[in-house]
């Protein structure tokens, strides 16, 4: 028991796990946008940065409570998502992807040019308020939210849009409105993740929220299993932790990672857990077990 507590108290382990949780919350937002609603977003890091800077600036200048700041970060990102969503979610597929990417780049360049964000030098001295407990709590809460959304009228409308937007519209779903809502919620999660990130790393630089970060988040969601919460958890955890374990092959790490992206898409285009229905697997297992029990009971009965 003590060794377990010791393990989590180790500053390095603690830091890495907290960061994983922060990325997970952010990635779950993208899971809702891309995995559930089927809309491409190549600029998730941009929304993360909006949340990060909002929360950090509130902490530094207004000294409002940490949780409020993180929440405000989420709301700021969600609002930005909504404002971008209304005009651009009329676009489909790649056009939407490239628009979100462009938006995130513009956000990054604006942050480089503003004084209040510290420009390209970055923003330092953010208090370290994020800890493992709070992140785990929020991550679990986010996971529950995702499951509940998925099993609701709201969530079914989103999956309908992913499956066939035109049919969804014909079924009475205001597709544009629902897409904007999904986008706003997804970017809200990114903002919350950003706020937590800021108070964990204690330093923000626009360069940390560039295209590569956005694509990294996309990989978390896709490689683990697109449209699947366990997939997103797996993808985020493995891809955040792997670099830590692969430090000895540091130089070739990215080479392996990128080659993996290609092979993965060729052999499992839906990601590792994509298309795996855990609930069904579990139910099947239960059924089989019950059937087995009934059978042994039968046999037993006959023998008597």
């Amino acid at each position: 028991m003590e060794s377990i507590i010791g393990f989590f108290n180790d500053p390095y382990i603690n830091q890495v796990l907290t960061l994983t949780g922060v990325y997970l919350i952010t990635a779950l937002g993208l899971h809702l946008i891309t995995g559930i609603t089927g809309q491409f977003s190549f600029g998730h890091a941009g929304f993360m940065s909006i949340g990060a800077y909002t929360a950090a600036l509130l902490s530094l200048h207004l000294e409002t409570p940490f949780i409020i700041n993180v929440l405000m970060g989420g709301l700021a990102a969600g609002l930005a998502g909504m404002l971008l969503g209304f005009p651009s979610l009329r676009l489909t597929g790649d056009y939407l992807g490239i628009t979100t990417l462009g938006f995130a780049e513009i956000v990054r360049i604006v942050f480089i040019n503003l004084d209040i964000t510290g420009g390209a030098r970055g923003l330092a001295g953010i208090p370290r308020d994020t800890n493992l407990t709070i992140v785990l709590l929020l991550a679990v809460l986010s996971i529950i939210c995702m499951y509940r959304i998925h099993d609701s009228r709201f969530g079914r409308a989103l999956t309908a849009i992913r499956e066939d937007e035109l049919a969804a519209e014909a079924m009475g779903i205001n597709t544009l409105l629902y897409k904007v809502k999904a986008f706003a919620i997804g970017t809200f999660f990114a903002g919350v993740g950003g706020g937590l990130y800021a108070h964990l790393i204690q330093y923000l630089n626009p360069a940390d929220f560039g295209v590569s970060r956005s694509f990294e988040l996309l990989n978390f969601v896709v490689l683990g299993g697109l449209g699947s919460v366990p997939g997103t958890i797996l993808g985020t955890t493995v891809l955040t932790l792997a670099p830590e374990f692969l430090r000895f092959v540091k130089e070739y790490r990215m080479l392996i990672y990128s080659a993996l992206m290609v092979t993965m898409m060729i052999f499992r285009p839906h990601g590792l857990l994509g298309g795996v229905n855990f609930r069904k697997l579990y139910l099947d297992l239960v059924h089989r077990r019950l059937a087995q029990l009934a059978k042994t009971k039968d046999v037993g009965g006959k023998q008597q």
Binding site: I149, S152, R153, F154, A157, A160, A168, M171, G172, I185
Partner: peptide
Amino acid sequence: IGRHCRGSSGLIGAI
């Protein structure tokens, strides 16, 4: 999903 237009609960209800 076909029943969508006869319902009213949204995000908050879902959560």
